Simulated assay, not measured.
Amino acid sequence: MLLIRRAAPAGPLAWTFPSRKVEVGESVERAAVREALEETGVTVEALSVLGERVHPMTGWHVAYVACQLLSGEARAASLREVADVRWVRLGEVAELVPGGLFEPVQAYLNGALPN
C-alpha cells in the first residue's frame, strides 16, 4: 500500500494514506483519486469506500477509500504537503502508524495484501 509522510505531521501521525479535503460537490471517491495524483503523482481508480470516522489523533473527519494503481511512479508530488512516499507491506504498518489502522481498513487489507 502507498503511504505518505506529511511535511507537517499531525502530532505523532506523520505517515498516512494520501489525503486532504473533499471539495464542494466532490464525492469521497473522486477526492481520493485527485489527492493520490496531487500528492504522489500516481493515477488510481477508486474501488470502494471502506468506512468513515473522526480520527482519534487529529479530530479530522476521514473517509477511507480502497484504490487500485493504474499508472505512474509514486513520488512526493506536492513538496508543500508531502515529505516522502513509501510503498509498504501490511506488516510494516505498525512501525509507521501509531495506533494502527482503522479496523474496517485493516480488515480489507488483511484480505487484499500480503504481509
Rank of each mutant, 00 (worst) to 15 (best):
L2A: 07
L3R: 02
L3Y: 08
L3F: 10
I4Y: 02
I4E: 04
I4R: 00
I4V: 15
R5V: 01
R6H: 07
A8D: 12
A10C: 08
A10R: 13
G11F: 08
P12T: 13
P12A: 13
A14L: 09
A14V: 04
W15D: 00
W15A: 02
S19I: 02
R20S: 15
K21E: 14
K21R: 13
V24Q: 14
E26H: 09
S27V: 00
R30K: 15
A31V: 09
R34A: 07
R34T: 05
E35R: 14
E35H: 14
E38Y: 08
V42T: 07
V42G: 02
T43N: 10
V44T: 12
A46V: 12
A46D: 09
S48D: 15
L50M: 09
L50R: 03
E52V: 06
E52M: 12
P56S: 02
T58W: 05
H61V: 07
H61E: 14
V62C: 08
A63H: 08
Y64L: 03
Y64V: 03
V65C: 03
A66S: 10
A66Y: 04
C67P: 04
L69F: 05
E73A: 10
E73T: 12
E73D: 12
R75L: 04
A77H: 13
A77N: 15
S78P: 02
L79A: 12
E81H: 14
V82I: 14
A83T: 03
W87E: 14
G91M: 01
V93D: 00
V93S: 04
V93K: 00
A94W: 04
E95W: 11
L96Q: 00
V97H: 04
P98M: 05
L101Y: 01
F102P: 01
P104T: 08
P104A: 06
Y108P: 01
G111H: 00
A112G: 01
L113I: 01
L113R: 05
P114V: 10
P114E: 13
